[in-house]
Nucleic acid binder design. Structure first.
Lengths: 214, 214
DNA sequence: GACTGTGAAGCCATTCACAGCT
DNA sequence: AGCTGTGAATGGCTTCACAGTC
């Protein structure tokens, strides 16, 4: 077992496996095979086995994988054995929805600060959190030890916010704004871009209309 | 120039090119090179040229691409020369944020119906749209000719909603719920999954702490 | 017999490098 | 000289196929 050079695609799938395993664990299932996991998340069984094999030998030949055990392993691989304090920039409609989303804590994330630059919003509450002005960002990041920031501001402010986040020591950004952020190599960015995904749908719909498939 | 077998990755990038071109068009720029586009969206210039070459020869050697012209071409390739009527299921926090998001119309999408099964919400307004019960779905889809549905409901309802959408003739689904949908081959699904993306961040943060990079 | 772990093969996507046009 | 379009080379990811284990 050696680490280093894990395909990005593998990491994304681990997340899916993890959720699937927690689902079946709730139903009381004790053992699963790679075929069951594969069916559950819509991939090839060999893929599942290969993905897991990057990190060790978790299964038993002839039997399969112990659900609880594998679930724990994957959570640890993904770093979810600890709680991650996250700062959220942008308290608009999307930002508010994210701030109030209960699903984060189930996956081991905790929003520790919500920031906005609109004086109208500052001081208001989102759940148990008060919306703070951006000047308080550095302070909160330091206090809480946040390494992750979520950007939920309009496109024209996103780059500026990104730089600010990097400036206060944030190491990873989840970007919901519809633009490409320009940050140093050392900062990890993941984009959640609905338009891009919607447009993949329209492209394919159009294709099917003009070209004959299978 | 032949169609068929366009890499999925190419389609996603086209969306980025499209947005980038509209940005620079607003600034009055007339011509761009593949290098400028590449820098703008963070990819390799050869990639840009290859992506575009799947669909024709849009550039002029020695000069570059005409911004307006290329922008139009790409919009057409993505199917954005027409307006797409979209139905949205789920009027919770996320659904509401999506219903009120102004960015969709800039990209040629129009939300034509918002649905929920919570009697508390039905009848309330989201912008100019009234929240409707799910029984009205078939009617709206038919009237508006929607082919695209957005799922913004909790995980435990998502599969059921997906089947309902397929049942009324929806051909493509943008899924915001944290689960893998099981629908027929003929339905196109794109998942927007924040947890998966967040967990890619934690994985990488953890990696960097334990393993030495470059 | 059932299922994992894994080398090898196959497939797809990205990047290089250069001919060809302006 | 500058830049596109593209075959060839490379790199990465997925799937196959089977030896190994229970």
């Amino acid at each position: 077992m050696k680490t280093l050079k894990i395909p990005q695609a593998t990491v994304l799938r681990l997340s899916l496996y993890s959720r699937f395993l927690e689902q079946v664990a709730e139903k009381g299932v004790v053992t699963v095979s790679s075929v069951e996991i594969a069916d559950g998340v819509g991939v090839n069984p060999a893929q599942v086995r290969k993905d897991l094999a990057y990190f060790g030998e978790f299964g038993t030949r002839g039997v399969g994988y112990n659900v609880k055990e594998l679930s724990q392993h994957i959570r640890k691989i993904l770093g979810l054995h600890q709680v991650w304090p996250v700062v959220l920039i942008g308290a608009g409609k999307l930002g508010s929805a994210l701030a109030l989303y209960e699903g984060f804590q189930k996956r081991s994330f905790r929003i520790v600060g919500v920031f906005d630059n609109d004086p109208e919003k500052i001081g208001k509450k989102l759940g148990h959190l008060e919306i703070l002005p951006l000047d308080r960002l550095a302070e909160v990041v330091e206090e809480e030890g946040s390494q992750i920031g979520i950007i939920a501001v309009p496109a024209d402010a996103a780059q500026q916010v990104a730089e600010r986040l990097v400036g206060v020591g944030i190491k990873a950004i989840l970007n919901f704004s519809p633009c490409v952020l320009n940050v140093g190599e050392e900062v990890i960015v993941q984009n959640v871009d609905f338009s891009v995904n919607l447009e993949a749908l329209t492209f394919n719909l159009q294709m099917r209309r003009t070209v004959q498939f299978r």
